[in-house]
Amino acid sequence: MKLAFLASHGGSAARQIASACASGALVGVPVALASNNSRSPALLWAQESGLKWAHLSSARIPDPDVLDATILEFLVDSGADTLVLSGYMRELGPRVLGHFAGRVVNVHPSLLPRHGGRGMYGDRVHGAVLAAGDPESGATVHLVTQGIDEGPILAQSRVPVLPGDTLETLKARVQATEGDLMLQALRTLQESSTPQPAQR
C-alpha cells in the first residue's frame, strides 16, 4: 500500500498509520499529505517526515473543478494507491473519488448510518448521540463515495454511553478506538485487493 493523506488539522490518524508502517504492524508506505489548512500541524509533520506535501485549498484555488484536478495531480504524482482522510473537513471532488474509487477511507465518530450526513462531524456527532439518548456509540471506518458518510462500512468499534457522560468524555472514549480501527480497516482493504494464489 502506498498511502496518501488529506488532513485539516493535526492528522492524528496519518501519524498513527505512519508509525504502524514503520513498525511493520501495517504493510504500507506513507508517501504524501495535503491539507486545506496552511497552519495545519499535519503539514509540518509531513515535511519533517519527508513526505511529499502541499497546501491545497479553496482559498488558494477558488474554482472547485480546478482544485479537484490539482489535488488529483498531487496524489497521482506521489504514487499513492490508497487515500486516507485524517480529519479532512472538505468534500472530495469527482475526479479524486473516481480515480481512487474503492480506495478512499474515512473514520466517522458514530455508528453509521446513525448520526451521519452533511453537517455531522466532530463534536456535533457526539452531541447528537447524547441528545438522542443512544445507549452506545463508537466509530466507523468506511469507504468514501459521493454520498456523505454513505460508503460501505469496513469496520466499527462500539463503546457504551455512560450515565453522566459529557460531550468531552464520550468523545475521548470514541477517539481512543479510532486508531486501531483504522489499521484494522486498512488491513481488510489490503487483503481484499491482494491477488490470491491459484488453486492446484
Rank of each mutant, 00 (worst) to 15 (best):
M1D: 00
K2E: 11
F5Q: 07
F5S: 07
S8C: 09
G10I: 08
G11C: 13
S12L: 14
A13M: 13
A13C: 12
A14Y: 04
A14M: 15
A14F: 07
A14D: 06
R15Q: 15
R15Y: 08
Q16F: 14
C21K: 06
C21F: 06
C21A: 12
A22Q: 12
G24P: 06
A25W: 03
L26N: 03
V27E: 15
V27K: 14
V27D: 15
G28Q: 10
V29M: 12
V29T: 15
P30H: 10
P30Q: 11
P30D: 09
A32R: 04
L33A: 03
S35M: 10
R39C: 05
A42C: 10
L43S: 11
L44E: 15
A46L: 07
A46Y: 05
A46M: 10
Q47R: 15
Q47A: 14
S49N: 14
L51M: 11
W53C: 13
A54S: 14
L56S: 00
S57P: 04
A59K: 15
R60I: 12
I61V: 15
I61Y: 04
P62M: 14
D63C: 10
D63W: 08
D65G: 15
L67W: 10
L67D: 06
D68H: 07
T70Q: 12
T70M: 08
L72H: 02
E73T: 15
E73F: 03
V76D: 11
A80H: 08
D81M: 04
D81C: 09
T82G: 00
L83H: 04
L83Q: 03
V84C: 10
V84S: 06
V84W: 00
S86E: 08
G87T: 04
G87F: 06
Y88G: 06
M89P: 05
E91F: 11
R95D: 03
L97C: 02
G98E: 08
G102A: 05
V104G: 00
P109T: 00
P109Q: 07
L111D: 01
P113E: 09
H115C: 07
G117V: 06
M120I: 01
Y121K: 03
Y121L: 00
Y121Q: 03
V125D: 02
H126W: 07
G127Q: 14
A128L: 08
A131S: 14
A131M: 11
A131L: 13
G133Q: 08
G133N: 07
D134S: 08
D134Q: 09
P135L: 15
E136T: 11
G138P: 08
G138T: 06
A139Q: 01
T140D: 00
V141S: 02
L143V: 05
T145A: 13
A155P: 02
Q156H: 00
S157I: 04
S157N: 04
R158I: 13
V159A: 09
T166R: 10
L167C: 04
L167G: 05
L167N: 06
E168M: 11
L170M: 12
A172W: 10
A176K: 11
T177F: 09
D180S: 14
A185C: 07
A185H: 07
A185R: 03
A185F: 02
L186Q: 07
L186E: 01
L186P: 02
R187C: 08
T188C: 13
E191V: 11
S192Y: 01
S193L: 13
S193H: 07
A198D: 08
R200M: 14
